[in-house]
Amino acid sequence: MFRHIVLFRVRDDVTDPDVSAAIDELRAAGNAPEVTAWTVVPSLDTRKGRIIVQDGTFGDRCAFETWRAGETHRQVARRMAGMADWWVGDWSTDVP
């Protein structure tokens, strides 16, 4: 399995409706056949600002790379680049 976790720190000037629309778009990005599990939620802890948590699982790295190269991912990445900074954690659960 391959895990892909992203923490999006939404910029302070972004409106709540724009955040909601982004969450909807991020959730839709998990509807690809390469995705085996997908969660997108706002963080309950807002001490450091508004954070969107994206947690994805793929069968393997190849499936992830196929998904990442797709148009849906490119579109949502462009949207998020305009409204957030983010940190990514990727790893394979097959590697100790």
Rank of each mutant, 00 (worst) to 15 (best):
L44Y: 06
A21Y: 04
I52A: 02
D90R: 02
E71I: 10
R68M: 05
Q75W: 11
P33N: 03
P42K: 01
V40C: 00
D55Y: 14
D13S: 14
W91E: 06
F58T: 00
V6D: 02
E25A: 15
A28V: 11
T57F: 09
R74Q: 12
V88W: 11
W91P: 02
L26D: 03
D16S: 14
D18V: 03
A77Y: 12
L7M: 05
V10G: 01
I52Y: 00
R47W: 09
D45K: 11
M80H: 10
P96Q: 14
H4R: 07
E34P: 00
H4L: 03
A21L: 15
G56P: 04
D55T: 05
G59L: 12
E34F: 00
T72F: 09
H73K: 08
R50L: 15
T46P: 03
A81R: 15
V19W: 02
D94W: 05
V41L: 08
G30I: 04
D90K: 00
R74W: 10
I52S: 01
V95A: 13
R3K: 14
Q54T: 14
H4W: 04
E25F: 12
V53C: 09
A84L: 07
A63Y: 00
L7S: 05
T72V: 15
G30S: 09
T93S: 13
M1S: 13
S20W: 08
F2A: 01
L44W: 03
P17T: 06
D94E: 15
S92H: 04
D16K: 13
V35C: 03
W86K: 07
A63T: 03
E34N: 06
G49K: 08
D55E: 13
V14W: 08
R74C: 05
E65H: 00
N31T: 11
M1P: 09
L7H: 06
A63V: 02
D12H: 14
C62E: 13
W86A: 12
F64Y: 08
D13G: 08
M83C: 15
R50Y: 07
R50W: 08
T36L: 03
F8L: 14
F64L: 00
F8M: 05
E34Q: 12
D12F: 07
V88D: 06
